[in-house]
Design a protein around this nucleic acid. Structure first.
Lengths: 207, 207, 207, 207
DNA sequence: GATGAATGAGGATTCATTCAT
DNA sequence: GATGAATGAATCCTCATTCAT
C-alpha cells in the first residue's frame, strides 16, 4: 500500500544544508537551483517537493541558522551565574554557534543583506524579520547589563547602546573572520572582547 | 573645437551616485541597469559610455565610498594628538563618514557580501579587494594602539585582536543602524564606544 | 486464485470520468495528471496502469463521449418514422446526449480545439479523427434529407450544405449554452431549431 | 538625440499577426514564445517589449479579431435596408470576416475554448469577456428580427432563441470548415443559411 | 555623445512520466 | 496492483549588453 518511505524532515534538512553551502559559496543571487540539487545529490525538480521556491529555501535557512543560537542563549540565561559570567558565556556561545555553522559562515552576509532590504520594503515582514531577531538578542544583553548595574557589579552605563555595541562587535568580528581567517584569531577575539567589556563595565570600588 | 563639452568625470559621478542609491535600495543583484539610468535621468545605453559593465559600476562605487574615509584617516594620523585622542577621532570620523554617505548606507551590505564571496573566489582579486582594505584600516588602529602602549598610556593588550574588535564594532553598529535606525542612537554609540575602549585600555597607575 | 480482483474496465471508466471532469473544468493543457488522480481518488501513478499517457486519456475520453451519441442515432434511424419526424428526433437526441454528458459539456471545446489542430498535423490521425466523426454525422442527416426529398416531403435543397448547417447549428447552440447558460433556453432551442428547419424544408403543395 | 525610430503600433501588429498564425497552427498552449518570435522574424526578448506576457498576446489577438467584425456589423445596421436584407447582409459579413482572418480561422477554437474556461473562473472577466461579445452579437440579430416582426415581414417567433440559433449556426459552420474545408462549400453555406432562415421566418400572406 | 529598441543567454519553475517499494 | 517520491526536459520570462540612428 504505502510505497517508498522517505523521511521528509530528514531530506528537507539535507536540501537545506546543501543550499546553505551553495549560498555561502556563491551568494543567494548567484546560487542556481541546479547547484543546490547537485550539492544535495538529487534532481532539480526534487527540491520543489520540499520547498515552494528559492526564496522559501532562503527563509528556511535563516530560521535553521537562528534556531540553535536562540536555544543556546536561553540555556545560558537559565543558568545560575552572575551578570559578568553570563556576559562572558553569551560571547563564548555566539562564537561557538558561529563555528558550529561550519561552512555556512558566509551565509551570514546574505542574511544581513537580505534582511536589510526586506526591512525597507514591505513583504516577508513576518517570515523574515531580521530586525526582530536583533531586537531580541540586544534585549538579552541589555537584561544582563541591567541586572549587573542593579547588583552593583557594573557601573551606570547606557545599557541599550552598550548592548548594541557588544552585539555589533560580535557581528563585526565574524565578518572579518569570514573575510580574512588568517588574520583573526577567534579564540583571542573571544577572550579579548570579554576582557574589554567586563573591564570597562566593572565598577571599581576604590576610585 | 569640441562640439559638445561634457565633463566626463562629472557625469561619471552622477551615474555612480545614482547607482549607489539604487544598490542601497534594492541590492546589487536586483538593481537593474534601467533603474540606474532612470535614477540618473539618462538613457540606459549612456551608462555604457562611462562604465564597461554592471560589475564595474559596483567596483567604482566601492572605491568611491572608500576613498573619502581613507583621506579622512590620514588627516587624523597627521594631526598632533595623543593616541587616546587619535582613537576617539578615528571613531568619530568613521561615524561621520558613514553619515556623509547618506542613503548609501545600505550599500555597505553589498560591499561586504560581494567582498566576502570574491575573496573566496578567484576573479576581481585586484580590483575589489575588501580584505586589503580591512587590513589597512586595522593596521591604522593597531599603529595607534602600539603607540599608546609604547608611551605608557595603554596597558599591554593584543593589539591585532583589539584593532579587529574595534573595527568590527564600528561595522556592527552601523549594520544595526541600517537595519533599525529607531533603536540605535548613533551619537550615543560613538561616545559610548570611545568610552568603553579608552576606559578599558587605559593603564591605571595604581594597581 | 487472483489475490485482488479489480474490475479493470470499471476502474478505467472511473479514471476517464474524473479526467473528463477535470478537462471540462480546466481544459486539456491546464489539467494536471495529479488533478485527475485526486478527482478519481487514486494515486498519480495508478493512472499509468490504465492509460499510457495524458494524450491517451484524452482520446479515450473522446471516444467515450462519442460512443453514446452514435448508438442513439442508429436507434432513431432504425425506427419507423417519416423523414421529418426523424429529423426532429435527431435534434432532440443531440440535445439529450449533450445534457447526459452533464458537467462534461465544456470538454467539447477541447475536443474541437484539439481535433482541429490534429487534422492539420500528422499524428493521431487514426485514433482521434474528428473529421471522420463529423462526416459520419453529417451523412446521417444527409440521408434523412435525401429520403425526404425522394418521398416529396422536402423541397429540393443542397442536402450536403443543409446537413452541415443543421449540424453546425447544434454545435453552435451548445457552445452558447456552455458559455452563457442563463441566456439560452435549451428546450426552446430544440423546438425552434426543429421548427425552423422543418418549416423551411417542407414542400408547400400550393404555391 | 532621438535614436532608432520605430512605429510601435506597426510592430505590435506584426507580432500580433505572427502570434495569431502560430496560435492557429499549434493552439495557444503548444505555441512557444520562440515560435512567435521566429514567425515574426524577431528575437524572443523583443516580444516582451510589446506585450507583457503570452496571455496578453492572446487577449490582444482576441480584441484584434473581434474589432473588425464589430465595425462591419455597425455599418450594416446603419444602412437603409429592410430586415430581411439586413439579416442576409449580417450572414454574408460574418462569412467575409471569417475569410479575411485568413490563416487565423483556427484561432477561433482557442478563443472559444479559453473564453469558456474564463467564464467559469474568476480572473480576466473584464479583458476577455466572450460572454459579453456573444450577447452583443445576439442582440444585433434580435433587433433585426424584432424590427421584422414589427413591420409584418417576419412571423411571430422567439427572437432570442432564433438569434442564438442563427449565430450558433454561423459558428458551427465555420468550425466545420476549419475542420474539413473540402467538405464545406462556404458560398453555398452562406446562401443556404440565408435561404433557410428567411424562408422560415417570412410571413406568408395567404395562410 | 546619447539613446532605447533589439537581443538571447540564463534561470526559476512546472509537470508528465518512471520506478522502487 | 498501487503508490507517490524523484526526475529533468521543456518553457516563460528577465535583463545585461549591443548597436543603428
Amino acid at each position: 500500500m504505502s510505497p517508498k518511505i522517505v523521511d521528509k524532515t530528514e531530506k528537507k534538512r539535507t536540501i537545506l544544508q546543501a543550499a546553505m553551502k551553495v549560498f555561502a559559496r556563491k551568494g543567494f543571487a548567484k546560487a542556481k537551483m541546479n547547484d543546490i540539487a547537485l550539492e544535495a545529490g538529487i534532481g532539480k525538480g526534487t527540491i520543489y517537493e520540499y520547498f515552494r521556491s528559492k526564496d522559501q529555501i532562503f527563509i528556511n535557512a535563516f530560521h535553521f541558522f537562528i534556531g540553535d543560537m536562540e536555544a543556546e542563549f536561553n540555556k545560558i540565561l537559565a543558568r545560575d551565574m552572575n551578570p559578568k559570567e553570563k556576559l562572558v558565556a553569551i560571547i563564548k556561545a555566539t562564537f561557538d554557534s558561529f563555528f558550529s555553522a561550519g561552512d555556512f559562515g558566509g551565509i551570514l552576509m546574505d542574511f544581513w543583506a537580505e534582511g536589510i532590504r526586506n526591512h525597507q520594503q514591505e513583504a516577508m515582514e513576518d517570515v523574515f524579520n531580521l530586525k526582530e531577531v536583533y531586537r531580541k538578542y540586544r534585549q538579552i544583553i541589555m537584561d544582563i547589563l541591567e541586572e549587573g548595574i542593579r547588583c552593583g557589579m557594573f557601573r551606570e552605563i547606557d545599557t541599550q547602546t552598550t548592548a548594541s555595541l557588544l552585539f555589533g562587535c560580535l557581528d563585526g568580528i565574524m565578518l572579518q573572520y569570514i573575510l580574512d581567517p588568517a588574520f583573526v584569531d577567534m579564540n583571542a577575539a573571544s577572550r579579548t572582547l570579554a576582557d574589554i567589556f567586563t573591564t570597562s563595565l566593572t565598577k571599581h570600588k576604590s576610585r
